[in-house]
Computed example of a mutant assay.
Amino acid sequence: MNLREDANRHLDHPPARGQSFVYAAEQRLTKRLAEGAPRWIAPAHLSLIGAGGAALAAAALVGCDAWPELVWVVPPAMAVNWYGLTADLPLARSRGDESPGAGMAHHVAELFSHITLIIAYGFSPFLTLRAAAAVLVCYLLFSSYAYIRAATRHVQQMAYIGLGVTEFRILVAFWPFAAIALGVPESLHDHLPAIDVAVIGLALVAVLGLFGKLLKDGRSIAAASAAAASNQKK
């Protein structure tokens, strides 16, 4: 048994893909969508459609400052984003075309979508630029950690405490309506809007939780490596 195998045996791994609250139902739905996709649609086309949905939602969010009625464009645009970026990889798998290009198109489109949407919220009437910057920092930290885990422990954790990409899309789609109900647009001109306090506070808690998980994983890896070294000496 080599060091990597021994470490994997000792570590308590989560599932190969971290599961969100809607993961199981979403997988069944996207499988049906992939099976029903026309033959002329390629996985990369769906990735592009998903990115286009995000770009449309971002444009509507920014435009809401001048044309408030554009808020109704955000949910359907996010539905397009969801369809494109949840059906592209299942479509590739169903056709036996799990090429690096399909995976690259998906991840680039998803990264573009999330960053564009977060920045757009900073220029919308529903979030301040400070709050959007805090969300962006959290997103980049959690994404980086997910890629580190994928590279070092061969684990693709796509959700934390049950919250994953789809839950993020739902929040993006419906936060404008919640913000309007809470009076957020009227409060954005305050010296320290309540939304900034809430978002930045939650961001700090999330970052501290991430560092705690990082330390826990580091101790687990160190313990597994020490056990493997000890076994090799015997």
Rank of each mutant, 00 (worst) to 15 (best):
D97Y: 00
S124W: 03
L129A: 15
A198Y: 06
I148K: 03
A55W: 08
L61P: 03
D6H: 01
A206Q: 07
L46F: 04
S113P: 00
R4D: 05
F142W: 13
L188G: 04
S124M: 01
W175Y: 10
R130D: 09
I221P: 05
A146S: 08
R4H: 14
F174T: 04
L214M: 12
I118D: 11
Q157E: 14
V135S: 11
P185Y: 02
L127T: 01
Y139C: 03
L61F: 06
A105M: 00
A194K: 12
S144G: 13
V205M: 06
Y139V: 05
S187G: 04
A159D: 05
S143P: 00
A179E: 11
L129Q: 10
H45E: 09
Y83L: 14
R9P: 03
L140F: 07
M1P: 09
D190R: 04
Y139P: 02
G164L: 06
T86S: 05
A66P: 03
K233F: 06
T152Q: 05
H10P: 02
G164N: 10
G18R: 10
H154M: 13
M1N: 05
W72L: 12
V197W: 13
I41G: 05
E26W: 10
Q156E: 10
F126E: 08
L140K: 05
I200A: 01
I180W: 12
D12A: 14
L136S: 05
V199K: 14
F123K: 05
L204E: 13
A92W: 04
R130T: 12
L208M: 06
A179I: 01
H107F: 08
D65P: 04
L163D: 03
A87C: 03
E35N: 10
L202G: 14
A223G: 07
S220D: 14
N8F: 15
C138H: 02
A194E: 13
A151Q: 14
A151I: 10
L111N: 04
A42T: 03
P76G: 08
G50W: 00
N2Q: 11
R169I: 03
A105G: 01
P193Y: 07
I200E: 04
E35Y: 05
A54Y: 06
F112E: 08
K31G: 15
A34V: 12
G122Y: 11
L91N: 15
M104N: 00
F21L: 15
R17I: 07
H189N: 08
V207N: 01
D217I: 15
Y145A: 09
L210P: 03
G218M: 07
P75C: 04
I170R: 10
A54G: 06
K233G: 06
L210W: 05
S113M: 02
G18I: 09
I49G: 12
T86G: 06
A159V: 09
